Computed example of a mutant assay.
Amino acid sequence: MAFRDLVADLDAAVVRDLADDDITIDGVPVPGMFAAPWLGPDLGHQRTQLDHPQVSVRDADVADVREGSIVDVGGDRYRVFELQPDGTGWTVLLLKG
């Protein structure tokens, strides 16, 4: 099995086991993981400076998402203000309430 196939299998397992099942983007259900680090959580003794809600999604699942797209998660509505692809096939969508 090729490395690319192994990574695709791993990504599918991550989505299957960890994705929130109530995320829609512009009305379309999208598998992803929502995080709301409101208070800039501590990582050991260092502040992480994370202060925006965000959704981690596979690039292929958000090919049409743009800044301004509407994300609904668990009854809350957000607007995408930045897309941050990480180069591994995943993108973090930074959100505003």
Rank of each mutant, 00 (worst) to 15 (best):
G74R: 06
E67K: 11
E82W: 06
P41Y: 12
T91N: 04
D22F: 07
F3K: 06
T88F: 07
R66P: 03
G75I: 02
P41N: 08
V80W: 01
D51R: 13
G40T: 09
D11S: 05
R66K: 13
T91W: 02
E82V: 14
L93Y: 04
D61G: 08
A2Y: 02
D64L: 09
V73N: 00
T24V: 02
R16L: 13
E82H: 02
A13K: 11
D11V: 11
L10I: 11
R58I: 13
I25C: 00
I70D: 00
D5P: 00
V30N: 03
V65T: 13
G97T: 06
D86P: 06
L93S: 08
G74E: 09
G74H: 04
E82T: 14
F34W: 01
D61R: 04
V15Y: 05
G32Q: 09
F3D: 06
D64N: 12
K96A: 14
W38C: 00
G32Y: 12
I23G: 00
R4V: 15
V80C: 04
G32F: 13
D11Y: 08
Y78P: 03
D9H: 10
T91H: 03
Q54S: 15
D42T: 15
V65E: 05
Q49E: 10
V15C: 06
V92P: 00
D51P: 00
G97K: 04
Q54C: 09
A35R: 14
G75Y: 03
D76L: 06
D21G: 15
V92F: 08
D26V: 04
G75L: 10
L10N: 05
V65A: 10
T88S: 12
P37W: 01
A19N: 05
D76M: 12
Q54Y: 07
L39Q: 10
M1H: 08
T91M: 04
V30W: 11
V73W: 02
G32D: 01
E67T: 14
P85M: 14
P41Q: 05
L95C: 10
K96E: 12
P53G: 10
T88R: 13
V55R: 04
L95V: 06
W38T: 02
A63L: 14
Q54D: 07
M33T: 12
A2K: 07
Q84K: 11
Q54W: 03
L93G: 08
G68C: 03
H52T: 09
P41G: 14
V55W: 01
D17R: 14
A60T: 09
Q46T: 15
L39C: 08
V30L: 12
G40N: 11
